[in-house]
Design a protein around this nucleic acid. Structure first.
Lengths: 156, 156
DNA sequence: CACTAATAATTAGTGCACTAACTATTGAAG
DNA sequence: CTTCAATAGTTAGTGCACTAATTATTAGTG
């Protein structure tokens, strides 16, 4: 029952302490940070996942659902209803691509494009709110990307 | 090309690049790690949030809903239906506390307590799966706790 | 004691995320 | 050309997470 240590049972038991779980800290951190974004994004009328989709489209505008879902590392089934809500909000349009009737062209409306201006202040606001320097944000970002790579890693 | 430099607009625009968003990296990392747990926890018949509740109860068994919700940093409204499913699975019981009819005593059943044995291998399995050393896990954990503290910090 | 505050848990409603199943188009092969 | 597989999106179903509203009990105050 050991775990590469000399003191089998106790070490394994300690590993089951809630506070020691990386997965616990990670999910709480994720929810906390998303929660911190909430009031800021509310002023744009966006939820956090919707904000990510808009970031996506501000970078390049007519994109397919699959393209967006890959950029955000999410299932198309998750993105689909989310896009419907953004369309209802008047920020994007969904049209079939001519020449490929099964693909969808998701594009910004003028309102959606205009929202970008208001969004430019979000990263700075959040950095201030979290009390992080640009360097700290970048370090955290690298750490997260490494972790993502680890999950996608060897043989998953 | 950074912002602490002389070129204002460009830096702000760069901040809106999806790939640079800490919130993006963090949510993807969280989903990825939870996803990596999934097949491992499936063998215990638990989802990831349910696993966290069980960790909680393995540490101390008759606990109130509020107590659990505070330990997990989640709303009681989130925990409530989750506990109902754990009760249906036969892992916990929910009984009113005598002497305080509004509080609920959430306690492990023998089956719930027994499941702990099988769970002892989870942290080690996950460390191996992610290719992380104990030191790396601890460093990541500290980083996340710091980030959580930052969101709870100054004036939220 | 009656009235009110506060506390404990649940329910309703919205939205996100996943898997599995389904429709519809496109492309490839015989 | 027709069949069959691959691709693109959507829908259905389960579960998590939050806010707001509701019910029930307990505690405090006049």
């Amino acid at each position: 029952m050991s775990a590469s240590q000399s003191e089998g049972t106790q070490a394994v038991d300690d590993d089951l302490l809630l506070e020691r779980q990386l997965c616990f800290a990670l999910t709480v951190a994720s929810r906390s940070v998303v929660g911190a974004y909430k009031p800021v994004l509310e002023r744009l009328g966006l939820t956090h996942p919707q904000y990510l989709v808009m970031l996506c489209l501000w970078e390049s505008s007519p994109r397919s659902v699959r393209d967006i879902s890959e950029a955000l590392a999410q299932e198309p089934a998750t993105i689909s209803p989310l896009l419907r809500r953004l369309e209802t909000a008047g920020l994007i349009t969904r049209r079939r691509v001519e020449g490929n009737e099964r693909a969808l062209a998701v594009a910004l409306t003028p309102a959606g494009a205009a929202l970008r201006q208001q969004a430019t202040s979000v990263p700075g606001t959040m950095m201030a709110k979290l009390g992080l320097t640009r360097e700290q944000v970048e370090a955290l970002h690298r750490t997260m990307m490494d972790l993502i790579a680890a999950t996608a890693g060897p043989q998953a």
